[in-house]
Write a protein that binds this DNA or RNA. Structure first.
Lengths: 141, 141
DNA sequence: CAATAGTTTAGAACAGTTCTAAACAAATAA
DNA sequence: TTATTTGTTTAGAACTGTTCTAAACTATTG
């Protein structure tokens, strides 16, 4: 019984973590709850940390960084590079692209199938395409 | 006569700077020489600083940062965001896209007309597209 | 229940970048 | 020219986001 209690928010989260070779600790489960419990999200490390603390989770910033990287490595998150000063993490790991509002620092998903990129030349010898990132930068109209 | 001597490397560089509201100082002219004197380039601030020092230019890192930002503001450079830890500056300000070799941290231009992006949805109310960035991330094949 | 292996943490360390205030150089006025 | 104003450079301090460290802790395994 005690074994199940803390998994109540996401019954399968423990298994998802185990499958990724990560122990389902309190911190990881709580962070997973915040990240995956409410649709697609874009968060920075400090943003998630603040949110966790506000929600009463006792987690250190170091653990937030560790967890974000581990989740990214496990394919549960994707790191988005749009801003020189902070890394953003996207809970939507499917193939899709982004709008980025420069002034607000806000990311908005563009559904995967919508955008098509054509005319990409062959990569240089010995290199293969890993992925194609499209960022549509927006300014106040 | 002394007035022209230090402009020998780039006869019009002084005027380009003046047109941008920047005084053509020794440092700015020397950096401009390195940046624009040899085709399209991709440089980081520290990279340019190292190159300048190696070429015997006495320039501080602070000035390199200032200059890169001023040149970017003047439309002579473009800032490329591909790497979480460093900013890259591109001397090619025309419309074009990039290959990015993750492991080497190297950028390669893709000519502007080559790549086409289609199917971009209308931006949210009150926002306008500023530009569309495409980064094709490469890994060792 | 003990032993082991993985995790968390506070705080120090780090890298890249920006800031500060004083020295300096260029442009302008006289 | 020289004096004055305005813009620029600089060393170093400060700052920010991120990573590292080593000790305490927790989950899992034997």
């Amino acid at each position: 019984m005690p074994k199940r209690i803390r998994d109540k928010q996401a019954p399968d989260a423990s298994d998802r973590l185990r499958a990724a070779g990560l122990r389902p600790t309190r911190q990881r489960l709580e962070l997973a709850g915040l990240l995956f419990g409410m649709g697609d999200r874009h968060l920075t490390a400090e943003g998630l940390h603040a949110e966790a603390r506000a929600a009463g989770c006792k987690v250190s910033l170091a653990t937030v960084y560790n967890t974000l990287h581990q989740f990214t490595g496990a394919g549960l998150l994707r790191q988005v590079m749009v801003d020189a000063s902070r890394s953003h993490f996207d809970t939507n790991t499917g193939s899709h692209q982004h709008f980025y509002c420069e002034d607000e620092g806000r990311l908005i998903d563009i559904p995967g199938e919508a955008v098509a990129v054509s005319g990409v030349p062959k990569p240089p010898q010995g290199m293969a395409v890993d992925r194609v990132d499209v960022v549509i930068r927006l300014r106040r109209a």
